[in-house]
Amino acid sequence: MTLPSRRSALPGFSLTLGITVVWLSLIVLLPLTLLALRPWTLGLEGVWHSVTEPRVLAALRLSFGIAALAAAVNMPLGLLVAWVMVRYRFPLRNLADSLIDMPLALPTAVAGIALTALFAPRGWIGALLLPLGIRVAYTPLGIFVALVFVGLPFMVRTLEPVIMDMPRDAEEAAATLGATRRQTLLRVVLPALTPALLAGFGAAFGRGIGEYGSVIFIAGNMPMVSEIAPLLILIRLEQLNYAGAAALALVMLLASFAVFLGLNVLRARLRSRA
């Protein structure tokens, strides 16, 4: 390694860089590298079979599909909350603002059993929905509800700083030029927020794909119907099928990296056009 071009005459460079690189390697890089190597003990064909079993494909479709759906629904919900928090003043606003991080502060197992209790057929919300023929708990709809809960803060926290920094003159100019409020919002505000909406979507989606604790209690976990991919990893581990578990994990990691890469490219394009 080349000598560092020091920004300062401060000591401790080798020591702190040493600690950082060693800890990062031992805790993150080495285990993840070994994870990426493990599936290939099955051989190329074995890996292919392992990740294209119907049950695996159903689980991947479910995890990615519902995570995408929940992240998409969080776009309007998050936009509403972020807009109201930044632009309006109302009683208990600070309390509401702190509450938004609740899904991230609350341990996922607690969120999981709480949502299950609420949406179970005899729960406070579940009992209201049952006469309408809507069953949430123990169905894929339950997974959706849990992922909306978990994803909301990602969307709100991504949008808030952007709304805060948005110059209001553009909105006023549009209004002065005779645009209605609706036109201003659709043609001026929404385009300015699109990159942030996509970033929020990516963050919520990424969290949703791998989410386990808040989903597992409400999902029902029926193979082919409501069984999420992370659960299938656990099941394979319990069967001591380490290579199969690693293969599925690798597919999930690669797919979520691909999604992030795609979203980043999209955002960069939108930004350069703006």
């Binding site: 560092p4 460079f13 950082t20 994990a249 992030f260």
Partner: peptide, 29 residues
């Protein structure tokens, strides 16, 4: 406090565990 090659990559790698599913975070061990 210092500038050195690979600094940006280091920052990115430090955040890597946030984008890994909890189940996979246990699986690696």
């Amino acid at each position: 406090r210092f500038r050195f090659p690979g600094r940006g990559a280091l920052v990115t790698l430090i955040e890597l565990p946030f984008s890994v599913s909890p189940v996979i975070s246990g699986l690696v061990w």
